[in-house]
Design a protein around this nucleic acid. Sequence first.
DNA 1: ATATTAGATTAGACGTATTCTAAACTCCGG
DNA 2: CCGGAGTTTAGAATACGTCTAATCTAATAT
Lengths: 144, 144
Amino acid sequence: MDARAIRQSLEDSGLRCTAQRYAVMAFLVEHAGHPTAAEIFAAVNRVDPRSSRATTYNNLRDLVRAGLVREVAVEGRAARFDARGIRHHHFVCDRCGNVEDLEWYDVPRPASHSLGKRVLRECELIFRGLCSNCARRRAPRKAS
Amino acid sequence: MDARAIRQSLEDSGLRCTAQRYAVMAFLVEHAGHPTAAEIFAAVNRVDPRSSRATTYNNLRDLVRAGLVREVAVEGRAARFDARGIRHHHFVCDRCGNVEDLEWYDVPRPASHSLGKRVLRECELIFRGLCSNCARRRAPRKAS
DNA sequence: ATATTAGATTAGACGTATTCTAAACTCCGG
DNA sequence: CCGGAGTTTAGAATACGTCTAATCTAATAT
Ligand SMILES: [Mn+2]
Ligand SMILES: [Mn+2]
Ligand SMILES: [Zn+2]
Ligand SMILES: [Zn+2]
């Protein structure tokens, strides 16, 4: 996704393409590592122009509303964000809290009778366990 | 799950069955509505003996670690908790944030090649959309 | 061009959820 | 009794996010 495409997707969503908003979106497209709002704020300000914390939060809120960005709530930690590029699932590490992308595959929807009058928008599949880093540290050596 | 069973499950997990800890667990078993820590704190203190806020949080942490309680992180709101009774999925309302139980069904695991060296503990399926209450308010009347 | 307007940004105060701290308490085995 | 691990407590402290009110910007109307 290049600069032009980012600009376009913002405008298609009825959002002005301001320098600050563009910077947030561009950073997320660039970095697939699920940064927190604080990390995004720091990163876009390392460059230019200085953006405020409130603006970063405002823009993240707007981008999530527009469906361009996904927010991942992790228990006990700051929310994490990613650009909704190609569909994928998430793996959350029990130990370090890292969020990693996992190849997407179709998820069976719930039976409509169990859904009742609810209106379903999306099914999110989250895997939990130990990331490869933490699995290595945790696992006892086979033979010393 | 009766008093005896609760006491037993705590001890099986290596946790002393204190009045405060028991009260938290009993409240969760009793109330399937996914209360927040603050709600649990208020509820167990409405009865006896007075438990502190820190203790409520400590016990929730211990119970989650022991696998007896599940924590559900909802973006922008306080965490919610439920006793892990029979397996079920969750539906989270976009509008009011309520968490509702949904009938459980098996979820296909990811291909092992996409999992890499990660150690998978569980697959969690979360549905999002509008709960029946919010769907009613939102949807335009068909004919007045 | 100038006025008007809605949208966006800003710094910092604020609020809420959660964790930390350090002292006291409880239970149990020796 | 005594010692130690586990637990509880009140309140301070922190983390994260939202709000306010003033200011700025960009798009449109006159
Ligand atoms: Mn992702
Ligand atoms: Mn539940
Ligand atoms: Zn990890
Ligand atoms: Zn709702």
